[in-house]
């Protein structure tokens, strides 16, 4: 069963984590060359959505003309080319407290994916790379299958965190 017991605390935690992760992915997509390469292979205008069933939270990212990802405001998040859905808030909590990696969650059928699964693979790689910037190494080790320290990690980490906090979009319109 879920920990902590209070659903409201858990929901608040998840909302915060989704907000931070969504912003961080947007920021990292303008900074990390591997993420940029991954995004460049996505179809134009492609939208990727990650939510928790039944009532969220979640985020939607769209590929911009500049080849980065942009976090869409909630009112623009209806349809997506690929939608990943975590099957329960408690399972989302396990994933976002980094007690289970996204690969393990996918392999256990805890996440539903609707749409082209190649896009789901891209989103998971982008999330993993972003987590390496966001999280201390010891925690990131639990969240990703293989920890690869990117070049200039500390400088880029500061850059990603700064952009996440001030929520500066990485240029380009959706």
């Amino acid at each position: 069963m879920a920990f902590p017991r209070s659903r409201r605390v858990r929901q608040f935690y998840l909302s915060m984590l989704f907000l931070i992760t969504g912003r961080a992915v947007q920021a990292a997509s303008g900074i990390d060359p591997d993420i940029r390469r991954e995004v460049s292979r996505l179809p134009e205008d492609c939208t990727l959505k990650l939510t928790v069933w039944p009532k969220g939270p979640g985020f939607t990212l769209r590929k911009t003309e500049a080849g980065t990802l942009r976090l869409l405001p909630p009112q623009e998040t209806s349809d997506a080319d690929m939608h990943m859905e975590i099957q329960a808030p408690a399972l989302g909590f396990t994933l976002f407290t980094f007690r289970e990696s996204s690969a393990a969650a996918a392999s256990k059928g805890r996440i539903t994916a609707s749409g082209e699964l190649a896009l789901a693979c891209s989103l998971v790689r982008i999330l993993n790379r972003t987590e390496i910037y966001l999280l201390p190494r010891r925690i990131a080790l639990r969240a990703v299958k293989r920890y690869e320290s990117p070049p200039k990690k500390h400088r880029r980490r500061l850059h990603v965190l700064f952009r996440t906090l001030i929520f500066k979009p990485p240029g380009g319109s959706p």
Binding site: A103, A106, S107, L119, A120, S122, K145, R146
Partner: peptide
């Protein structure tokens, strides 16, 4: 190799 990066079975591989 490029196309393989989009195959979902890579989730389940013990090594990335």
């Amino acid at each position: 190799a490029r196309q393989a990066a989009g195959d979902p079975s890579l989730f389940y591989s013990p090594e990335e």
